[in-house]
Write a protein that binds this DNA or RNA. Structure first.
Lengths: 146, 146
DNA sequence: CTTTATAATTAACCCCGCTTAACTAATAAA
DNA sequence: TTTATTAGTTAAGCGGGGTTAATTATAAAG
């Protein structure tokens, strides 16, 4: 179990570094875009889950349906999401990203990422080649969780 | 340059995964703690830069000094940071984390981290052992950036 | 058909974060 | 010493994001 423990410890440290960077960058870009963190979180959630209802979104963000509904008003107004009726159950509003909304997410993920290039530049070619499998496997496995 | 490119690509993918996770987790924990994202960002900033003045904080967060000053009122009130005079230049207020503030950051980084254990569990012992050097080197190099 | 449950919205309200503008205090420059 | 600059706070006001409670509309159950 020694290896497993030190692996988890190393993973935690690496995750902590990337989380700090990520949060800073997302907060920056979110502010630059004139959105609130809840709004940006909504866009990310919708991209990941395909489409959702208002309650699903509220539950995900940990806010009431009322709050979610009001926030959606502004996102719709800005043309970032679409709020349409579910044809199966007309009580449900089907929330989907617009093309503009998808672009916003893309920019948010790729803005302020120069540090990744810097990190890459600080490694030797041998290290880079050796680390690629690790990164790919971790990413792939992480995608499958929950 | 092929390896370098695919390395950066793999790095980007990993960053994207952790960004999505951390955004949700940090927002959750921040809400649970009764703090705003700006307040949490302030704590993280102060931990990273040691100590800062009000203007420095405002500049970092992209808000006015007035806004920073008001937000600090609440953080001081909650016992998370200390606002003391700089003995060299008494116009400057020296902002530092309290022990409670440091604990808040620690909790924020480690709350909702079960997915890392899950991720670890989804790997074979051979993979874990093989990945440890990569994680350690990446962490160490990333710490030295900027 | 009537009743009940579910999904979402609306209204009234509060708090917070942010802005601008005016102000105080301390340092630097003339 | 007088003036200008810098750091920070205060005050007034706006708008957003959150809440609860009441309301509408649809679907499901009796």
């Amino acid at each position: 179990m020694k290896n497993a423990d030190s692996f988890v410890a190393a993973l935690h440290e690496w995750a902590e570094i990337t989380m700090r960077r990520s949060m800073r960058n997302v907060m920056r870009h979110t502010k630059e875009s004139g959105l609130s963190m809840s709004q940006m979180g909504t866009l990310f959630y919708l991209q990941r889950c395909g489409h959702s209802g208002v309650s699903g979104l509220g539950g995900h963000l940990g806010i009431t349906n009322a709050a979610a509904s009001q926030m959606l008003d502004r996102l719709v107004e800005q043309g970032l999401i679409l709020r349409s009726e579910d044809p199966q159950d007309r009580r449900i509003k089907r929330l989907t990203l617009t093309e503009q909304g998808r672009q916003m997410i893309y920019q948010s993920l790729h803005a302020h990422q120069a540090w990744l290039e810097e990190l890459s530049a600080s490694l030797t070619p041998q290290e880079k080649e050796a680390f690629i499998p690790a990164l790919r496997t971790l990413t792939e496995k992480a995608k499958q969780i929950k």
